Amino acid sequence: MNESSHTRVSEDERERALGELSRHFSGGRLTAPEFEERSTAVWAADTRRELAQTFADLPAAPALVPGSEVGPIPGMVVRAGAVAIAATVCWLVLGNVLWLLLFGVIPALLLLAKRRR
């Protein structure tokens, strides 16, 4: 087994993985319950091997074309998108629109806290 598969994952790696899951969800490869289950697995993953298992049945991300202007998505954008998707899933599953309000406030508070630092 590869030594790097036992390497512990960082928060940035988890955020990138969540962004990739969001891409698969928006592409129709995952249902809302599958996205929620895999998102939980991403945040619970301790090693790169555990993180990779979340994507075992999904196609790999296309490589960026050299010279393209598209770069990595900033972490705060990924977090805000993940929170928005989680709010939508809670709203659809639980049937209460207040989830959208609650989860809409969390990213705003995170942005304010980050700006004050």
Score class of each variant (00 low, 15 high):
residue 1 M to W: 07
residue 2 N to T: 11
residue 4 S to K: 15
residue 7 T to N: 11
residue 10 S to R: 00
residue 10 S to W: 01
residue 11 E to I: 05
residue 11 E to C: 04
residue 12 D to M: 15
residue 13 E to D: 08
residue 14 R to H: 06
residue 15 E to M: 08
residue 17 A to E: 01
residue 18 L to C: 14
residue 18 L to I: 14
residue 18 L to V: 15
residue 21 L to S: 03
residue 21 L to Y: 05
residue 24 H to D: 06
residue 27 G to Y: 03
residue 31 T to M: 03
residue 33 P to V: 01
residue 35 F to I: 02
residue 36 E to C: 05
residue 36 E to F: 04
residue 39 S to D: 06
residue 39 S to G: 11
residue 43 W to V: 12
residue 46 D to S: 07
residue 46 D to P: 01
residue 52 A to Y: 14
residue 53 Q to P: 01
residue 55 F to D: 01
residue 56 A to P: 00
residue 56 A to C: 02
residue 57 D to H: 08
residue 58 L to S: 15
residue 61 A to R: 12
residue 64 L to Y: 09
residue 66 P to K: 04
residue 66 P to N: 04
residue 69 E to S: 06
residue 70 V to R: 15
residue 73 I to N: 00
residue 73 I to T: 05
residue 74 P to D: 15
residue 76 M to C: 09
residue 78 V to D: 02
residue 79 R to D: 13
residue 80 A to L: 04
residue 81 G to S: 12
residue 82 A to H: 08
residue 86 A to F: 09
residue 87 A to F: 03
residue 90 C to D: 08
residue 91 W to E: 15
residue 91 W to M: 14
residue 91 W to G: 03
residue 95 G to H: 10
residue 98 L to K: 10
residue 98 L to V: 13
residue 99 W to I: 01
residue 101 L to R: 10
residue 102 L to K: 12
residue 105 V to K: 05
residue 106 I to N: 00
residue 107 P to L: 01
residue 108 A to T: 00
residue 108 A to G: 00
residue 112 L to K: 08
residue 112 L to V: 10
